[in-house]
Design a protein around this nucleic acid. Structure first.
Lengths: 148, 148
DNA sequence: CAGTGTCTTGACGTTTACGTCAACGGAAGT
DNA sequence: ACTTCCGTTGACGTAAACGTCAAGACACTG
């Protein structure tokens, strides 16, 4: 079966071996050993992918660990199924909120960029509105909607 | 004109006054003073909204400050317009990547939850596949795609 | 005018997620 | 046998983003 060394994974994902060992300290991955050295299976690699993606979307390592543990539900813990489902739903809601935040941010950034490009095209750095005291930036309403 | 106290804003956004003062220390907002106390304008409030949203989508305060400063472009800095546009584009790319990450995570969480709910419905915590060594979780392929 | 409440400025503590040595262990090449 | 590469385990350092007192400044209220 395919295996990986720690530096192989580190190079592949653009992180340091130190980080990977840290994830092990925090119980997020449990590679086997060959003597003293760590050996990573495809499953360990897959967990690393989930860890890094989780980080990119703003989860803490503790939260990611909880999610990975929830994936690891087995027969013995079957009584906790309802709790697990609830936790998953919470995560899903959080992510959907976050996606909405990102949509907002993207809208604003694109609109602001468009205006900047117009100014660039005009090549005339004359008077421009800049921002006023009513919560508008570069003439574009910030549209402060939901904030929780 | 409408104004706010620090604790009003803190309560409204579910954060502490300490955090708001911290944002001021870091030059993200610059409220006026009435004697000793801080007074926040609608524009300050709007900046707070952007700060908190930025945090939710994973930006650091330094990055958020940079973005706010970029919004604050004025005539004198018109020569930096091209740089500003570039920075905005970078942010947009980062956010689009992040949105894709979220879509992935949502897919996985929903699929996993669906399987858990089936198990709950069966009410029979007998044998289940759990996860194997090939990178599958609860019988559902993790589909580790792009990782940068 | 004592008390209560809300504000202020330090100053230090804390958590998260690693970075950065230091010192050592085996395998591999010469 | 000696060096050169990985790899390992501590141990300590660090940056970000506040939390947590402490001590004082005002405004009001009874």
């Amino acid at each position: 079966m395919q295996t990986y060394t720690i530096s192989e994974l580190a190079a592949e994902f653009g992180i340091t071996p130190r980080a990977i060992r840290f994830y092990e300290d925090e119980q997020l991955i449990k590679p086997t050993r060959q003597g003293q050295s760590r050996i990573y299976s495809p499953r360990d690699r897959a967990r690393l992918v989930l860890i890094l993606r989780g980080k990119r979307v703003g989860f803490s390592l503790d939260e990611i660990k909880e999610m990975l543990d929830l994936y690891d539900v087995r027969d013995g813990q079957a009584t906790q199924l309802a709790y697990t489902v609830k936790k998953f739903s919470e995560r899903i809601n959080a992510l959907e909120q976050q996606r909405a935040d990102i949509e907002h941010s993207l809208e604003e950034l694109r609109a602001a960029r468009a205006r900047l490009e117009v100014m660039l095209a005009e090549k005339q750095p004359h008077r421009m509105p800049a921002n006023d005291e009513h919560g508008r930036l570069i003439g574009y309403a910030m549209n402060p909607g939901a904030h929780d």
